[in-house]
Design a protein around this nucleic acid. Structure first.
Lengths: 251, 251
DNA sequence: CAACTGCGTTTCACTATTTGAAACGTGGCG
DNA sequence: CGCCACGTTTCAAATAGTGAAACGCAGTTG
């Protein structure tokens, strides 16, 4: 194993354990390493902004970089944990499968799934990707991304079925509708016979971080039933957002 | 500089950037490193629990360890930022200096300070340490530590002045009183002529993470004025706790 | 006020460590 | 069944890490 990396990692752990800035010499004593070695390692960590030297004391401390790099992991874990019971409840109530998805590059990454208990089921596995532009789970996310991101995603629009919405203007209008109603729908656009309704999930800061989707065969997503399914997706997403600390502010 | 460590750091950043687990080969391509090198580095990170291999896909992803190591930095920054205006306001209202302290090893670490505008001032600098057992800022923290920690701290009790409380039973009783009233006081115990009152600051989870202290010359901390100063420390600590997300639950 | 101490930092010859092409076993796919 | 790409292992060659010693500096001490 990379001995130098091991030393660098223990160094980071030592810096994390002490809350106050610490000097090279003391660090070397604690870790039983040579002073030069510690200096070189700390210097490397400094150059990469993992560590900062206090200009007054000359001592070193961690920056927020570790946290920045690690916070995503925790958020995703928390999201899955928090969303799981809601996915199950919505699947139970609706009789359809439910999905949890996040934006990943220019796709939707399926983070979690609860199958329906009905005989006719729709594919899709955890860890797979689906398109942003022609799925309900994707549009519920895409509608709340930055203009730049949407523009980039638009370049990737591909026709999947005869019913896929491929016009940019039409898609833009549809995204506006999603923002207005907080809900997205897609029928036969991703794959013929597959339909879904989805709603955005927001975190403490109000940012859309995921979306919850109710999906099943198009034959069951008929006009009479759609409003009910839409309400279920919305209510599920609202519950997850609430548990993530989101507090809607009037409007 | 430690080239190997640099590679390990970029590897961590690459793992953090992608939200889904990623394979050795792809990682090697992205970083333009040899597959063996990436494998050895990732293996090292795995052995130290910074990274975990998804047993199904064989791909690798960050664990929460980075976050755990970095979260303290952010919390301390946030604490200082949040506490600063309160320290200033309390200093203004009381006419005395205010301090913000946290537990560090078996001492109090002074994280921030606002001086009084009165001529007669008391020493103490940011970054220095004071004792847990014979200062108000220390007792406000010590009173809410674990039994084990308090037992360890008790072994470090030292007489600083003729008025220092050195009896274990007396100190234990005093800590109980601090827990009851949520406020600590110390007069002439740390240094003759120095007095202070302090109150604990709690975070979102209700844990005591810091304490706020109003300190000045004993000559100004007379019986007639003490209740008012105590109320100011309590109110200041309450405000900081509130801004950290603490919500007191009845009792 | 000079000697001392301990700090962060730099140097450099030595050597232990990292490197990368190649190959292995495996699992998925057409 | 053959193919491809994956994670993993190997090993000689080469590079990168090591640590004792010394530097300049600041603060402390007799």
């Amino acid at each position: 194993m990379s001995a130098t990396v091991v030393k660098a990692l223990s160094l980071i752990e030592a810096l994390s354990a002490g809350t106050a800035p610490i000097g090279i010499s003391q660090l070397a004593r604690e870790l039983r390493l040579n002073k030069s070695t510690v200096y070189r390692l700390v210097d490397t960590l400094c150059r990469h902004r993992f560590v900062r030297q206090d200009p007054q004391s000359g001592r070193y401390a961690l920056t927020t970089k570790l946290w920045e790099l690690g916070v995503g992991v925790v958020q995703r874990l928390e999201l899955r944990e928090v969303a799981r019971p809601v996915l199950e409840a919505v699947a139970q109530d609706s009789g359809e499968a439910t999905l949890l998805g996040i934006v990943q590059d220019l796709d939707v990454l399926i983070l979690d799934k609860v199958d329906s208990n009905q005989p006719l089921q729709i594919f899709s596995r955890v860890g797979t990707r689906v398109a942003l532009h022609c799925t309900s789970i994707g549009r519920a996310l895409l509608a709340f991304q930055s203009e730049d991101y949407v523009a980039q995603a638009m370049t990737k629009i591909a026709r999947r079925t005869e019913r896929t919405l491929v016009g940019r203007a039409e898609l833009a209008a549809e995204l506006a509708r999603v923002r207005r109603t907080d809900a997205a729908e897609c029928i036969d656009e991703w794959s013929l016979g597959v339909a879904g309704v989805a709603a955005p999930i927001r975190d403490l800061s109000g940012k859309v971080v995921a979306s919850l989707c109710v999906t099943g065969p198009s034959s069951r997503f008929v006009a009479r039933r759609l409003p009910k399914l839409r309400r279920m997706a919305l209510e599920g997403a609202r519950q997850v957002s609430d548990r993530l600390g989101y507090r809607p502010s009037g409007g």
